[in-house]
Design a protein around this nucleic acid. Structure first.
Lengths: 349, 349
DNA sequence: GTGCGCCATGTAAACGGTTTCATAAATTCA
DNA sequence: TGAATTTATGAAACCGTTTACATGGCGCAC
């Protein structure tokens, strides 16, 4: 493995000159530079990243911490992060499945000295204190955080307004008995969506009932299970809003098995607009979340923080969501035409 | 930011002792160690990764290069990689969207000194020479490579046998006019699946016809477009094998729009078994590829390579695939019962 | 009681770069 | 032509670790 010294010797210059050629900020004689390039190329030399970050105190790497790497949603977030980071000449050190606070702290410790900043979607159980502690050593940007942290920019999903819009839409279609499959307790977005659901009802002059809210965990199986509970309720709900698409899909599956037709017997609305949503029969009406933009915005905020060291400028952003009306809510005929190719998806492989 | 020197001073020992405490391989007096831990914790100290890798020449980081980060398939590969890497105390430096050889070389350059090994799914246009050049400085494990490279272990998908099985299954259902929507030229898996398709036909005593093969690009829109071409053929195919699920989905969509029923008028079989496949109506018969296992195996091979430095033991593995029969092929009634919750999926959020 | 070995610890030299500062050569200007 | 300035380069310090080697104290056998 050739080092800067080897290149210097081959090119007949000092290591300082080689360094200057590779960094390009200080003037170097053109001929000299050419010789250095030639030597470097002959030896297949490229500066060692670790050594470089040791002196410069910069790594050109962003840490990314996610609770999971599973499924459409996170996959898109990562893609957004990776793409912008790459464009800005940053690498991404990714780590998934951090269930506990201890996990998160261990992961950030392991990253110490390897990253310039941390983009984090923390587990629900995270505490302000832990994040503040990480923030003391590193710029941190939070995705969908349960609380504000001094010095941390963050980007959230407009869960509240999305849920409210979903409910308002159902109300507009004539529904009064609207149930909800909620997400896991402690999860910010789950709670915001629940809050939005209640607000939506109130705004329509409908009193929310506790027995119309069934607790789920964002997974399909919990949506499936929720159906049984909801079908027992009297009066029986004529519409169900699920806190995410996976649960909505499980719910629809269970409703179908119970011999009920969606949306005729029960209307269903989800949240997230994962790729699958449009392929359901009937296609799922849902609240669209641009996960790719979410990832991109997080990186953008990180770059801002990095550019303005200790500037203390903290930005709190929200990703807007929009109701994507398909057939599962009954607004359009249940027998939908097949989606034409292209417009809604272009997944590869 | 506290350094090892600060800790040494606070604990009243030398930096060597602190280092020993943190590495735990050399004996240190228990009381001394306790003092060091106390000092470290008080100062919130943890060894700087860059400095450490500079001396040890190890980074505990694996580089991951993928052509894209989009969709179910890659998302699962990454998850498999991340999970095993994490368990083995490695971090993962991920980079997606590398379309050209130049891109790949630039990415590996940028990773120099930051990773111990590289797990790579190279773009189709990659050359043996480029990979060999990377291999000269780093352990490399290839995913689905178009060729063997000296010193590189690799893991491939059993595309050939999967395709053959898919065709055999269609033949078994009585089909003789079986068409194919092929993947992009130059892609190994696409070509292997085409080869398997042809072999499957020959084994059934059917002469493959070139006009029954329509070129696609793995994207849904190309599957959609392929339908028109195939419906013009005389005799008209009674079954179509698509080189991946996305194209199969596009194809089904187009067939539906053309007023044809799947599987009654045309049977369809895909490849990959992406999450969506089971939700199609009719649910898509496809060749299941365990992308998660693919990622895991790649890391396992990398760990082997790393453990046996210059041992030269090169392993070439294949991920077995298995035909997942659902309804789109006509083997089961097209009016499928809805999937019960859980068994086939458990996606979160 | 002397010598030997072992254990715990400290000293200092790497590791591969960047960057400050000094210096020599080349250029400008009066 | 000589001083002043600019330009190109080199020498050396430094970044935060690990680790080979040195050292000193202590227990043990003879």
């Amino acid at each position: 493995m050739a080092t800067i010294r080897d290149v210097a010797k081959t090119a007949g210059v000092s290591i300082a000159t080689v360094s200057r050629v590779f960094n390009g900020n200080t003037a170097v004689n053109e001929d000299t530079a050419l010789q250095v390039w030639a030597a470097a190329s002959a030896l297949d030399y490229w500066p060692n990243g670790a050594a470089r970050s040791l002196t410069t105190n910069r790594t050109s790497t962003l840490g990314v911490l996610l609770p999971d790497l599973y499924g459409d949603f996170f996959s898109e977030v990562i893609r957004g992060i990776d793409q912008l980071a790459k464009r800005e000449k940053y690498q991404t050190l990714v780590s998934g499945s951090h269930a506990s606070v201890e996990d998160v702290l261990a992961a950030t410790r392991a990253m110490r000295g390897r990253i310039d900043g941390l983009v984090m979607m923390a587990p629900d159980s995270i505490t302000v204190e832990s994040v503040a502690r990480i923030r003391r050593r590193l710029p941190v940007v939070l995705i969908s955080p349960p609380f504000a942290v001094d010095g941390c920019s963050s980007v959230s999903i407009a869960s509240f307004s999305g849920a409210r819009a979903a409910v308002a839409h159902l109300v507009g279609l004539g529904h009064r008995e609207i149930a909800m499959v909620a997400g896991p307790a402690g999860n910010v977005d789950a709670e915001e969506r629940l809050r939005g659901y209640r607000r939506g009802l109130l705004e329509a002059g409908i009193q929310p009932r506790d027995e119309f809210v069934v607790q789920g965990d964002f997974r399909e199986s919990s949506g499936y299970a929720a159906a049984a509970a909801l079908l027992d309720r009297r009066p029986r709900p004529t519409a169900v809003f699920a806190a995410n698409d996976c649960m909505a899909i499980g719910l629809m599956s269970a409703l179908g098995n119970a011999g009920l037709s969606v949306p005729h017997d029960v209307a269903v609305v989800g949240f997230d607009n994962i790729t699958m949503a449009q392929y359901m029969r009937p296609p799922l009406t849902t609240v669209h979340v641009d996960a790719y933009a979410l990832g991109q915005k997080a990186v953008r905020l990180m770059l801002d923080t990095l550019a303005d060291p200790e500037g203390g400028k903290v930005t709190v952003q929200t990703i807007d969501v929009i109701l994507k009306v398909r057939s599962s809510c009954g607004a359009r005929p249940a027998v939908a035409t097949n989606t034409p190719a292209g417009p809604e998806t272009n997944q590869q492989r």
